[in-house]
């Protein structure tokens, strides 16, 4: 049995909304698991059920070999970092960190020792006497993390903790969270709707949509081998290009070109997915792109344009290539890196 076990966990709200469908998931000790999905997909609900803040309608949650369904959140030994940090506004940083320990009846010296260690680890030692209202966003974030770390819980839960920070700080805190988790080695679940955060932080990733885990795997597995149209579209930035097509006799006729010898026996309407970075320019390429806009990121250029049939399309090329607006590019797909999905079910067929 693994460290955290979810077995057919289901959440139905009193108004009948089914937020989480029979979800089963195992998380190993020390693992960094990320739940990623669009807002309203049930990822936060799942996390809150692990924390005990939401009742479980059906199914079981086991943590470290113990059934958690009926255990009070205060008894579960989990720590959570909230989106808006939920720091205690009337307590200074020291007391924010110490509160959970005090409630557990730990003696004063040990508390002081633990708080000071956590503060040092997070570089907030200088602010221990301040109130949360006197701290910047990044500092508050650190205090919230400190409050989780100091208790040395069985599991860390992060509920979109970076979404209130500005872009630069977000990247910095992302790195710090990852480093910290590796240093402390605590099993963690991190909920986010940001696929970059998900890719960079996760040991394993659960892509959730409409209350169902669409795919579970390492970030690279999911990027390289998306199992469904939703996962393919959600993971990767800029988004994968999708073209309509028809598959028959192992030949795909897409919008304006054909690919032969496809490794699939599926026949019928399909969607062809091609990542913008899996294209390269070549003479007599399959795809002809009329350039409308070029975003120069320095390292890369993002080329946006239209195909012959006015379909929007994106191509990513190295930043040292100069591409003129209004020009026509001829593109080939690298090494058969394309994905074919059943148009009606969204399932991968090649």
């Amino acid at each position: 049995m693994s460290f955290l076990d979810l077995k057919n966990v289901t959440k139905i709200y009193p108004n009948g909304t089914k937020a989480v469908h029979e979800t089963s998931l195992s998380i190993n000790e020390g693992e960094f698991m990320v739940f990623v999905g669009p807002s309203g997909c049930g990822k936060s609900t799942l996390l809150r059920m692990v924390a005990g803040l939401e009742d479980i309608t059906e199914g079981d949650i086991n943590l470290d070999g113990k059934l958690m369904n009926e255990v009070d959140p205060s008894e579960r030994d989990v720590a959570m970092v909230f989106q808006n940090y939920a720091l205690y506004p009337h307590m200074n940083v020291y007391n924010n960190l110490a509160y959970g320990l005090k409630n557990r009846g730990i003696d004063k010296e040990t508390i002081e020792q633990k708080v000071n260690d956590a503060a040092k680890l997070l570089q907030i030692s200088d602010y221990l006497q301040r109130k949360p209202s006197m701290l910047s966003g990044g500092q508050r974030q650190r205090v919230a993390m400190g409050r989780a770390i100091v208790r040395n819980p069985k599991i860390f839960l992060f509920d979109e903790p970076l979404s209130n920070l500005d872009a630069k700080l977000r990247i910095q805190m992302r790195l710090e969270i990852k480093k910290l988790q590796q240093k402390v080695g605590v099993t963690s679940i991190f909920v986010t709707h940001d696929q970059v955060e998900a890719m960079t932080l996760a040991d394993r990733l659960a892509v959730i949509n409409n209350g169902i885990i669409e795919q579970l795997g390492t970030p690279i597995e999911i990027y390289d081998n998306p199992k469904s149209l939703f996962v393919a579209g959600f993971i990767g930035s800029p988004q994968m290009n999708f073209l309509d097509g028809n598959l028959k006799n192992k030949t795909l006729s897409a919008e304006g070109f054909e690919i032969k010898d496809i490794n699939s026996d599926f026949e019928g309407e399909v969607t062809l997915g091609i990542r913008p970075e899996h294209l390269s320019q070549s003479e007599n390429g399959l795809i002809s792109l009329r350039v409308e806009l070029v975003e120069q990121l320095g390292s890369d250029n993002l080329v946006y344009g239209q195909l012959k049939n006015k379909k929007d399309f994106c191509y990513r090329c190295p930043g040292n290539q100069t591409i003129e607006k209004g020009s026509n590019l001829s593109l080939n797909i690298d090494n058969n890196k394309y994905y074919i999905f059943d148009k009606s079910t969204g399932k991968r067929v090649n």
């Binding site: 959140p73 205060s74 579960r76 720590a79 959570m80 808006n84 939920a86 205690y88 959970g100 409050r147």
Partner: peptide, 15 residues
């Protein structure tokens, strides 16, 4: 008072 405060306090062992 935001709900998170209560939730956070609960996880910190407050009754």
């Amino acid at each position: 008072i935001p709900d998170e405060l209560l939730e956070s306090a609960k996880l910190d062992g407050a009754n």
